[in-house]
Simulated scan of single mutants.
Amino acid sequence: MAAPDLTSYDLLAPQLSGGKDSAVMMAVFMEAARASGVDDRVISYHSSLGVLEWPPVVFGGIRYPGVSKLAALQSAAFGVPAARHLEVTRTMPGPDGTRMPHSLLTEIAAYGRFPRMGSPYCRKSAKESVVSSAWTPIVNRLKRELGRPVRILKVMGLRSDDGPDRKKRAAFRTVQANSARIVDEWLPVKDWSTGAVKEWHADAPVPYCWTYDSVLGAGDWSGTSRCSCSLCVFAARTDVLLSIGRRPRLADLYAEVEQARGDSFHGLAYHRPDPACRAVRCARPRRRLPGRRPGVHRPRGAGTAGPEEGATQGTRTGTPRPSRTAGGVEPCVRPVRPQGATAEASRPGAPPAVLRPPRDR
């Protein structure tokens, strides 16, 4: 479809996941914004999933950025100043009263059930509502200045090839309308095929995430097919097996949540229980699992422990179920600089781990 009238919006808000579709979306959207002369109204957002995101890694002496860094690079590559790219994440009061990150896995552990078809609460609570809350200060200021509801265009990189639910989703629709804000949603690359996206990346000004390849730097697109959560309940079985091989410590954590809550990570997502897909069985296999061989894995002792500890505490202490709305769980908003050590320092946690290729067994 043709682009909506971008000049009619007060805030243009592309949401970047750091995946392959986000880069294409940003290129198409920013071209339309510059053609309309409203690129100065753009503020890009990345909703950080913390420990669940694909992290930055070093392999063969080369550093490959994680998805948070990639989102910042995608924003900068197409003309958005660093100060207008914001990384947001959920926070909640900690034991000492200060606010601390509240990861999606912490919520799953407290809630007692993994997301599934018909109840994909992860999409709203960990992404959409966090960005929506981050708009509130801008909405309050502009509403006083304009004397009317603030018009916002939410731009996303969802495509029809991603699944039947996204194929049914309208390329343009109004998702919220009240006295404070009117929010429209636009999917500019909805009709792009997966092949077209990969072809575009051959000459793209930004790299794509390392997890798409079988081995880092291979350029074969034979790794995971998507780049959302490292372990996503809606991922294909081959993606789950590959992700477990690449992030075994995270798989162990999911397995602990499964055991503590008695809920299946992957089988119930499709209402088709599959014992072989339970993280509790896949995390520490005694034999080589079927599917594609993982190219890298995360060794013991690598990575950050803060968000992981929060998830395990949720299973052990019976943390109350948190609110899925903006109330009670506040977003942490911070600008992300796309280059230099400062950009890495802005992410929570310790420096990234070095990943090594697996040994044949």
Score class of each variant (00 low, 15 high):
R123E: 09
H85Y: 00
R144W: 05
V80H: 03
P164H: 06
K124Q: 05
S75R: 02
F78K: 06
A72W: 04
A171C: 01
V139G: 10
S125M: 08
T136M: 13
K127D: 10
T91Y: 11
R113C: 12
T174R: 10
L105F: 05
P115L: 05
S132C: 13
C122H: 06
G79E: 07
G94T: 15
K127A: 12
P81Y: 04
L158V: 07
A71D: 04
G118P: 04
A72C: 05
T136I: 12
S179Q: 13
P115D: 02
V88F: 01
E145N: 08
S160G: 13
G97P: 07
V183A: 08
V88D: 02
S103Q: 05
R181G: 08
R141N: 07
A170W: 03
F78C: 07
T91M: 12
R113I: 14
L187H: 00
R166I: 04
I138M: 14
V155N: 00
K168N: 06
R116T: 11
F114V: 07
R173D: 02
L142R: 14
D162E: 15
E107S: 12
A110K: 00
E185W: 02
H85F: 00
S133M: 08
T174D: 04
C122P: 06
G118L: 07
G79I: 02
S179P: 11
V175D: 01
T136Q: 15
K127V: 09
L73M: 15
E87L: 13
Q176C: 05
A76P: 07
L187W: 00
F114I: 06
P120Q: 11
K168M: 03
L187E: 00
P101C: 06
D162A: 10
A109T: 08
S119G: 13
Q74H: 15
D161I: 08
F114P: 05
D165T: 15
P93N: 13
M156S: 11
S119N: 14
L70Y: 02
V183I: 13
D162C: 05
F78R: 09
K124Y: 11
E87I: 10
I152S: 08
R151N: 11
A170H: 01
A180N: 01
G66M: 06
I108Q: 03
V130K: 02
N140K: 14
A126T: 03
A126I: 05
R166W: 03
V67T: 15
V130C: 12
K167G: 08
R113H: 12
E185A: 01
G94F: 06
K154N: 12
S68G: 15
A83W: 00
Y121Q: 04
K69T: 13
R113W: 10
S179V: 14
P149A: 09
P65A: 12
V175S: 04
P120L: 07
I182P: 03
V155C: 00
